[in-house]
Design a protein around this nucleic acid. Sequence first.
RNA 1: CGGGGCGUAGCGCAGCCUGGUAGCGCAACUGGUUUGGGACCAGUAGGUCGGAGGUUCGAAUCCUCUCGCCCCGACCA
Length: 435
Amino acid sequence: MRLSSYFLPTLKETPNEAKIASHRLMLRAGMIKQSAVGIYSWLPLGHRVLQKIIQIVREEQNKAGAQELLMPTIQSAELWHESGRYDDYGKEMLRITDRHKRELLYGPTNEELITDIFRSSVRSYRDLPLNLYHIQWKFRDEIRPRFGVMRGREFLMKDAYSFDLTKEDSDKAYQNMFVAYLRTFARMGLRAIPMRADPGAIGGNQSLSHEFHVLAETGESDVFYDKAFDSVSLEDMANADLEMANKLQSLYAAAEEEHDPDNMPIDSDDVQSGKGIEVGHIFQFGTKYSEPMGATVTTPDGDQVPVEMGSYGIGVSRLVGAIIEANHDDKGIIWPESVAPFKVVIINMRTNDEGCTGVCDDLYAQLDDAGVEVLYDDRDERAGVKFADAELIGIPWQVVIGPRGVKEGIVELRSRSGGEPENLAPADLLSRLIG
RNA sequence: CGGGGCGUAGCGCAGCCUGGUAGCGCAACUGGUUUGGGACCAGUAGGUCGGAGGUUCGAAUCCUCUCGCCCCGACCA
């Protein structure tokens, strides 16, 4: 992509509505534009990052055996009357009336819809286990949206729903997702700490539930966790298995609501406290929806039993903010390569120098042909402007090409995350960046 | 919903207290000089001062209502 024709409205100054780093940087980097309180348009750069995150989530869900489908954003109130939640959900649910005066709502979550899909087609224990998910926009009319996409009213969420015959099978499904979550967040460069949680309004009873928190100063939750978590590396989480899941679940970790300083299973000296951003929440809810909504299957014995369910959410749009909170400096964003909008930016120092531009054009074409996501800053701007923008939007690798180096047959490679610049021959640069 | 604050050019702000018909920086546009860290000179364009009503000879400025946005709190993925 040539920057001269790319829609990237970066800002030198910070819009006064943004108070935290991720919000500020997303606006300055031209990733989003607010449309109304807690509702955003995603501009090309932001959209690319969102797509990267979606793809990682999707791959890990598929790998874990979940199947993707897509349910609508607008739902009929009927199903919600059936589950009893239409009245329970309160003002957070955006209610809409259509031209026939029928009650509709913009879905804040999808348990009812998925249960309806399930019950209309699944009859036998032979069709289980089943795990269905979608990645779709949700709307919750928050009392106070804030922090940009971190607490928006409209947000993109991955929600998966498991269906099993027995509680034991449901536990397996839960553990399977637990592992997938550790891997998913680790692939984005995030060490997400699983914490015991209250299943809340959606779940119920005392069954399994964990929230996944990314540690960041601007997190909204106070969290407490065993310092043993500090020795669990990103690598460990990226390669997590059931054993790792068990190990982590045996460690103490809880957000404020669940934390009782006077009654902890471990020594208080071993407890760290901090701020967390909740990026995922998984829980079982047994037959809370299957029973009232008649989602039953026939057992091997010929009985009709309500199916055991669980649901598994990831705040996809929130993750964009969370990743920035965890990866930035005073110059801008520092994207982990896995979610970066582009892998590399070519900075042409002198667009009116034939030799320089020739080398840039060549490298750009070769990287592009090799499938490397490359942004080419071919704008007629000064060096400082280009460096500043490259740093602001956080592209992991910068290739700096100027007339001086070109004469000597070298180009410069810089990493956004630090370290000394390297001088390389163009061919060596290509082999470094390709693959 | 309670408390606090802000809406003046695309962005950041001054002017408001003490009414006299709008200004600064950046960005944009034109020309020139520049060119390895957000250039310089000259020029151009851009605002019914969030909206409505009122007071006044006269309102960005005073009064009333209203809409939008930000922060703190309760609440929540």
